[in-house]
Amino acid sequence: MDINTIIAVTNKFLVEEFEANPESITPEANMKSTLDLDSLDYIDMVVVIEDNFGFKVNPEDFQAIVTFQDFYDYVANRVQQKELV
């Protein structure tokens, strides 16, 4: 799966599941403040990621994610690792 597909799928579920404004989802935007995420939202996000991309997410992985670009890179790296197995 290429990065453009990952970004498209990710942005689609952010808009659908978290009612995000599509225009506010930019690579450099702060993900937590843009989506107004609380701890329960992160749990929901883990489930959505696992369903859409087929890999297990460690909740502590989110500590290193600040921007949407960080999030896209995280998903891309995990998908790539999964495809290599």
Results as ranks from 00 to 15, higher is better:
V15T: 13
N52I: 02
F68Y: 11
E50N: 10
N52S: 15
K56N: 13
D41N: 14
V57N: 06
N11F: 10
D44M: 07
D36P: 00
E23D: 15
T5Q: 14
V47L: 14
S33R: 09
V15G: 03
V57E: 05
Y42G: 00
L14E: 00
D44N: 14
T67S: 15
T5Y: 10
G54A: 03
Q69W: 02
L40H: 06
N4L: 13
A8I: 02
I49C: 05
N30D: 15
L37Y: 11
T67P: 06
D51Y: 03
N52C: 10
I65D: 01
T34H: 04
P27G: 10
A20M: 11
S33C: 01
I6N: 00
E23F: 11
E17V: 02
F18A: 03
T34I: 08
E17P: 00
P59F: 05
P59G: 12
N11H: 14
A8W: 02
N11C: 07
A64S: 15
F53V: 08
Y42L: 13
E50A: 04
A20T: 09
T26K: 15
F13R: 06
G54V: 03
T34N: 05
Y42T: 08
N52Q: 15
V46D: 01
S24R: 14
T10K: 06
L35F: 07
N52F: 04
S33T: 15
N4I: 12
Y42D: 00
E60L: 13
D41F: 02
A8K: 15
L35I: 07
K12S: 14
I3H: 08
N52D: 05
